[in-house]
Design a protein around this nucleic acid. Structure first.
Ligand code: FES
Ligand code: FES
Lengths: 147, 147
DNA sequence: ATAATTAAGGATAAATTTGTCCTTAATTAT
DNA sequence: ATAATTAAGGACAAATTTATCCTTAATTAT
């Protein structure tokens, strides 16, 4: 559904939201390990999410790392997709027509639009914070390594 | 959601299902034009769908082209995804965990699984034939060029 | 001030996806 | 039989995505 980059972005952001505090900000090594992603690549992705302080914030130097402001935690998950330039996935025609519309619907449209609506609603309603709460609190995981 | 290749595969198959008959089998040029796809690339994709006569059938030579057997028309849309090796998209974890499971759910799982179920149901229930019926009959389109 | 730590950023490489072109093989019409 | 038509298939090219590595800049601890 999403690119690897966006999957890493989602997992990393949720991890940071849950783990960061004033005292403790996870660094790249910790994050990549926790979400089971390639470290250098994930670093690039966090750079994107940090640019203009869109979603993720960071501090350099010893005890530095990544964190989310309270404001950022309240953002809908969709804002991560937007920062990754991949939120059009939610709006796309499932058969790849240039527009998904009632005016010129594809043969799947009538059935798919119901699902699409729920998908959009999910990503717009769920906040980053609420996903962070699911993580560990609700027993949700951000990797599924055996150990 | 799907790769371009799979989008072309879906559109092309639906088009062929609707347009082909004993007397008339659309060729590559016609298909690519109708579904607004790059011809040579689409040809490769139809080769995949034709291999082992999985979904699409073909005849070479004058008045040759592509068609679907009645049996093929009754296949679920998901079988096209399978032929393209891309049906795992339906089963995947939305955050990219290696497994989507109740045992080790990601933070989106509880909400997403409801949508996922509908998505799987849609692709397993809808037949290629029923989509072909939507096309032109039901006013559905396989491209949205202005003209 | 200095050294240590950590993210930012640039350059580059590998892998995959998307796409084109040309030749070959099969089939049909004449 | 021959020529025309059309899909099959191989080789290759372009574009995009994924990934690594190394240097630079900022910050902190000493
Ligand atoms: S037009 Fe294809 S899903 Fe809406
Ligand atoms: S585990 Fe992520 S969607 Fe099921």
């Amino acid at each position: 559904m999403f690119s690897k980059a966006t999957e890493y972005a989602l997992r990393a952001t949720i991890y940071i939201a849950q783990k960061s505090s004033d005292k403790n900000k996870p660094g790249m090594a910790e994050i990549a390990k926790a979400i089971d992603s390639p470290q250098s690549f994930t670093a690039k992705i966090l750079q994107l999410l940090t640019k203009n302080n869109k979603i993720v914030s960071s501090v350099r130097g010893p005890n530095g790392g990544f964190f989310l402001t309270d404001k950022a935690k309240k953002l809908p998950v969709r804002s991560i997709l937007e920062a990754m330039g991949e939120d059009e996935v939610l709006e796309k025609c499932v058969l790849g027509l240039k527009q998904c519309s009632e005016a010129k619907p594809c043969p799947m449209h009538t059935n798919y639009k119901l699902i699409k609506g729920q998908l959009i609603d999910l990503f717009e309603t769920k906040s980053i914070q609420s996903l962070a709460d699911e993580f560990e609190n609700g027993g949700a995981k951000l990797n599924n390594r055996i150990k």
